[in-house]
Simulated assay, not measured.
Amino acid sequence: MARVSNGMIAALNILTLVMAISAIGYSLWFNVKPENPCQKVLKTPLLVVGGALMVVSLAGLVGSCCRISILLWMYLFVLFLLIICLICFTVFTIIVTNKGVGIALSRRGVGDHRLGDYSGWLQKYVINAQNWDEIKSCLVDVKLCANIHAGKVEDFYKHNVSPILSGCCKPPSYCGLEFKNATYWTMPKTDPGVPDPDCKTWSNVQKELCIECDSCKAAVLYNIKREWRLLVLINICILVVVVFVYSVGCCALRNNRNGYVKHRGHV
């Protein structure tokens, strides 16, 4: 039975090691996604989870293969802490991303998102002086708005415009600005349709556009919220596997102790 438990935990730790490498690779992939080249906030949580899982898996692998009880004790203790951290982080992520729906415009493929749609913590975490200056600078450097479809107004609305392009590269729809091309809009002769600061923040300067608008910040938050929701699913999958591995590890440790007692009894 001891061999079975130790062999099983060794196999499971190989699986968790693969999951750890996948989590690290996935976090790096988020940095090169074309939809959000400037959003790095998901990189750190996944790197931390992946790194911790890798260290724990290696310790468990050595402890189970060599049947070193002290190493298994350390392994189970760290694994228990990892389970608690995963549970806390998953619950926290669900709470801070629970708010935010945006307003979709039917048959136009674009949407308006406002900062009030998102939790206060998420706003403070992302839309602070340091983080937003980095994101804004990156959006300009990667020429994000060059990806928006140009042409006639009919052609513009036929294409699905991603939230980040809609929020940062065009004025909010409720402002009532007149379309000239995808990144050039003019103020109507009357005042904007809604007395919103974003309506006056819009600029036809191609490096500015609506990047300073609250709608752009809200669009960035929309992408972050969607990615963190994906992170919740990843965390739940990892948590299920880790809890199972922890249970098998407890059995392996108990079997190691029983085997040691029997061996001493024969001496």
Rank of each mutant, 00 (worst) to 15 (best):
N13C: 09
R107F: 15
A218K: 11
L139G: 06
V153P: 05
L177R: 04
N13P: 02
V240L: 14
D133C: 11
F80L: 15
V32H: 14
V153T: 08
I135V: 09
N223T: 08
K143L: 14
A146H: 15
R114V: 12
G51D: 02
L47Y: 14
V194W: 10
V153Y: 15
N6G: 10
C66I: 12
K124L: 06
H149C: 01
G109F: 06
V242S: 12
L28H: 10
V18H: 04
V55P: 02
W228T: 06
M54D: 06
R264P: 00
V142T: 14
G51S: 13
N160C: 01
I135T: 09
K99Q: 15
K262S: 14
P188I: 11
K43A: 14
C85P: 00
V110P: 02
D133K: 11
Y26I: 12
L253S: 03
C237N: 12
V205P: 00
K152N: 04
L81G: 02
V96Y: 15
S22T: 14
V126N: 04
P45Q: 08
L139W: 05
K136Q: 15
N235T: 10
C199T: 05
E227Y: 07
I238D: 06
G102R: 11
C168D: 04
N13S: 10
A219H: 03
C250R: 00
H263C: 12
S22E: 08
P195I: 06
L61T: 07
Q206Y: 08
G111V: 02
W132R: 11
L53C: 05
V91D: 08
G7M: 02
L71Q: 11
A23N: 07
N6S: 10
T16Y: 04
C199F: 11
L209R: 06
V101M: 14
H149R: 07
L53R: 01
S119T: 15
V232Q: 02
R257M: 10
N128Y: 09
L42D: 09
V220K: 09
W185I: 09
V220M: 12
I234R: 03
M74D: 00
V4N: 06
L144Q: 13
W121E: 14
S247C: 15
V4L: 12
I83G: 03
V101H: 15
L209F: 04
T190D: 09
A182V: 05
M19T: 10
N147P: 01
R114G: 08
L82W: 05
G193V: 05
D196N: 09
M19Q: 07
N6M: 05
V32L: 08
V241L: 15
N235Y: 07
I70Y: 15
G60W: 13
L58F: 15
S27F: 03
W29H: 10
